[in-house]
Amino acid sequence: MNQMSMIAADTPIAIAGLSKIYPGQRGGTAVTALQHVDLTIRRGEFVSLLGPSGCGKSTLLSIVAGFQKASEGSVLQDGVPITGPGPSRTVVFQDYALFGWMTIQKNVEFGLKAKGMPARERAEIARALIAKVQLSGFEDKYPHEVSGGMKQRAAIARALAPDPEILLMDEPFGALDAQTRVLLQEEIARLSSDAGKTVIFVTHGIEEAVFLADRVVVMSPRPGRVREEVLVPLPRPRTAEMRADPWFVRTVKDLWDTLKPDWQKEQGQ
């Protein structure tokens, strides 16, 4: 194995010189959503993309997912350019995006069905995943019959089902109440650590970003770019008591201090 492919094997996602420009609509000015973003993500790493709205973090995730194309620069997965969405990079959406006409069981099975897996086998795998996200007993419920937190658990199980290399989470707890959010953060900490998945987690919650990640990539708006990176030395899996760790508390506060002007600016606009 030569050196290049070894690097590729260690860095499932390599983003270099990435820009995204939306042309102006009907004579309006073009919007630079992302400018010269360089980011390398290691295998098994949990990376939080943190920033206020308008910093392009969701756009970046959507480009990595393959839903949008970059205007400039390259996005490689294992050394190969990403050209579209695929089951090696599954997404958990803020609004769950569950299929309302399918039971939770069928939702989780969807990615397995897409693979052409026989019905019995995929039912088994889906059931195990549903148990893992603690939704056993709700297999035959429809999404509208369960709470927001349960919907998001189901969506996480669905995203894990095709056994993706990378899990992309786009503000997954944004629509949940504060208590449910804390519980699900701990759940994600446990799941991601168990599954050893590479995770990109987009959020505007500083505490959540630090609590979950090995590395917090802080972004700033207009144009969206990487502002700084913070390595989180806390061991994994993360547990609730780490929220009281002095390093954790200080880092969250420091990040708030640096981000505050950006936030205020976005609020003012």
Binding site: G66, G86, P87, F93, K113, R158
Partner: peptide, 17 residues
């Protein structure tokens, strides 16, 4: 819902599914 379409695509759905 665009997100539902995207969800299906990233889960590997082909045109028929």
């Amino acid at each position: 819902d665009r997100n539902q379409m995207n969800a299906a695509l990233c889960l590997g759905a082909g045109p028929r599914l």
